[in-house]
Amino acid sequence: MLPLRTLLPAVLLAALPLLQAHADEHLIERGRYLVQISGCNDCHTSGYLMAPGKVAETDWLKGDNLGWYGPWGTTYPSNLRLVLPRLSESQWLALARQANYRPPMPNQTLHHMTDEDLRAIYQLVKHLGPAGEPAPMALPPGDMPEGPVVMFPMPPAASK
């Protein structure tokens, strides 16, 4: 009979994939929660803003053709399912920490998230897998988009 000190490392080594799968599932579940409460789906998932909770998870985060028009031009929510898989986790963390996207992207939301939160979102997107088409390119101020947009008013003129 083998002594316990010989068997213990083998048992732990055999259990490692199960522990890793549980840790990954926990991160994915946390990512689901964060994507829903932080508003990621509101813009990056077509139709979600008008029917929260009714868009299938398989359609989440594929971007949208609905433009956001304002003094900055027109922006379109990117397809995170195509963008994030091209990045390593550390590249995603750096990108999120330096986020300075045009409105209506709430850059400060990414800045306030913990590394664990950002990793969870990254793991969810990787779990969902690549899907969909790239979002339209942003348009500069003054260029009118062809498709539907949400129009933001111009800010009031500064008083002298």
Rank of each mutant, 00 (worst) to 15 (best):
C40N: 00
G31P: 01
P9N: 02
Y76F: 08
W60L: 07
T74K: 02
V35S: 15
P130I: 11
L19T: 08
S159C: 00
S90Y: 13
W68S: 15
T109H: 02
R30P: 01
P17D: 04
L61T: 01
L93N: 06
P104R: 04
T114S: 15
F152P: 07
C43M: 05
P155C: 08
Q20K: 09
G129P: 03
R102M: 06
R97K: 15
I121G: 05
P145Y: 02
L49W: 14
G47T: 05
Y76N: 03
Q20P: 00
G129T: 09
L4S: 12
R97D: 14
P104F: 00
R30S: 09
L13K: 09
N65T: 14
A14E: 01
D64G: 09
N41K: 12
A135V: 07
P136H: 01
I121E: 04
D59A: 13
L8C: 08
S46Q: 14
V150R: 12
L80K: 06
H127T: 05
R119T: 13
P156D: 13
P77R: 00
L139R: 01
L7D: 03
G132L: 03
L49Y: 13
L13T: 14
T109C: 00
P140C: 02
D24W: 09
Y33L: 15
E133I: 10
L27S: 10
G67W: 03
H44D: 07
L7W: 03
D64Q: 08
L66G: 06
G47Y: 06
W60Y: 08
G132V: 06
A15N: 02
I28Y: 01
Y48T: 09
Y48L: 10
Q123G: 09
S78E: 15
A131W: 02
H26D: 12
S46H: 13
A21G: 11
V125G: 03
W72N: 07
P104W: 06
L80S: 10
V11P: 02
P134C: 09
R81Y: 03
P9Y: 02
P145L: 03
G63V: 06
D24T: 12
A10S: 11
T74C: 06
P136Q: 00
G147F: 07
A14K: 02
L118G: 01
S159P: 12
P106N: 15
L13Q: 11
L61P: 01
V83R: 07
M105R: 08
Q98I: 12
G39Y: 01
P148Y: 11
L87A: 10
R86I: 00
D24E: 11
G39I: 02
P148Q: 13
Q36A: 14
Y122L: 10
Q20V: 12
L128D: 04
I37K: 08
L139F: 00
A51L: 01
K126P: 05
L4V: 13
W72E: 07
W68T: 08
P141V: 03
G129F: 11
I37V: 15
I37G: 03
P134F: 12
L110C: 02
F152D: 10
E89K: 14
